[in-house]
Design a protein around this nucleic acid. Structure first.
Lengths: 225, 225
DNA sequence: ATCGGAAAGTTGTCAGTGGAAAGTTTGCAT
DNA sequence: ATGCAAACTTTCCACTGACAACTTTCCGAT
């Protein structure tokens, strides 16, 4: 929360185009965006369970049933927040695409994944909460599918470069599971976020890279320093 | 350590076991157990978000605030259910300890993990829901710590047998993340549970084993048949 | 210019929820 | 039998999500 990271998201990007016309477009300006922001903030503070539609509305300064008008129900709002989070993730993935060596790119994608999760706990807390969101939502499907697609592409390149007989789908699923599991299991994101956490995570991810590349039989997984 | 008193079944065991002493012990018999069972059932049906203390009480046939007397609040109840789930997991791990070859044992532990998750969705849905439970709870800490301990032991043996320079902690964390991530991400447990799902999962786990052992550089991750 | 419809937002209401507080039943030790 | 604590019930309160009905604002067609 030390940086204005939420701005990254496409949603703000799409609407932020001409603020002259949209900013005071209506009563509120851009309520959907404000509601998503309030939601992410609230989840960051109180966790996904502490979330409440009415509290979000209160923070956005609108009546308690205004959100329903834009998102239907709370699931709709949370799904939209989740999609926003995936947009951020995809954007950070795409920034890394110029990296030539696919293994290096994969390593950095893993770090980006964890960093995104740490920097946007409000979004991340809901991105894989299949209970809370509507995974069949069009925008959500598209953007989360795109994220996985990028991973598969990278794994394909790794296979081509290092091991042509690799089962790409299985490997991609496995990698995603590893990194996602780590993100989920990392105890108390806030603690890590506070201080030197990013370095620790990067170190751990380097070990993961070693393990993924070389396997239990050959990996040393030693701290590189 | 191969077979301590199987606390897991204590729940089901006590209800059927000595009904003379416990069954009609008090008003209800064994309310805490009944409440845990009702909770698991409810979560299985409606997901962790569909859970409500009052509905659980209703199913157990007691007043809406009876649960509070035993578990404090809903978090207490859910934590107890999570601990119960970990007991089951630890028990299934311990059944596999006689297997000599640690790699084989690890493979079967992974399958057991997924199978436990599939067979007890009500418990699993809450075991790693850090939002919903109190992870500092004594019993929860003990039993979940034990599960990880068993994994670390197995990884240690793998290191001793195959790769002495392996960083054991990192590797264990990584393996846990992989399998947990898979369990979390597996879309719709019920579907897989219905039919031939177990085989599919076993196959996927075999691929994971291959990837974990040999790494991206050497693994083929091909279907074994 | 204005009129009508649609989008944006409000107010009011309802059943349901968790939690606290206070009362009641039950078993048991003395 | 009596006293006491544990197990459970009843009552209450603030809060929630969803719905329906209402008002305000905008914008385009005439």
């Amino acid at each position: 929360m030390s940086r204005p990271s939420v701005k990254i998201c496409s949603v703000t990007a799409t609407t932020a185009g001409d603020s002259a016309t949209t900013a005071k477009n209506y009563h509120h300006g851009d309520l959907p965006t404000a509601l998503r922001a309030a939601t992410a903030e609230l989840i960051t503070e109180k966790g996904a369970t502490g979330f409440s539609l009415r509290e979000v509305a209160r923070r956005a300064g609108v009546s308690h049933s205004a959100p329903a008008h834009h998102f239907g129900d709370s699931q709709g709002l949370l799904t939209s927040v989740a999609a926003e989070g995936f947009h951020t993730l995809v954007a950070s993935f795409e920034e890394l695409q110029p990296i030539e060596e696919p293994l290096d790119r994969l390593n950095k994608m893993g770090k980006a994944y964890i960093r995104t999760a740490l920097e946007n706990p409000g979004h991340f807390g809901v991105m894989c909460a299949s209970e809370l969101i509507n995974e069949d939502d069009d925008e959500f499907c598209t953007v989360s599918g795109r994220a996985f697609e990028i991973l598969v592409e990278t794994v394909s390149e790794i296979a081509a470069a290092h091991n042509p007989s690799l089962n790409i789908e299985a490997a991609a699923t496995w990698i995603w599971s590893s990194v996602h599991g780590l993100a989920v299991l990392l105890p108390g994101f806030t603690k890590l976020d506070e201080k030197a956490g990013t370095d620790d995570v990067d170190l751990l991810l380097d070990q993961f890279s070693d393990l993924m590349s070389n396997g239990l039989f050959k990996a040393t997984a030693a701290y590189p320093e």
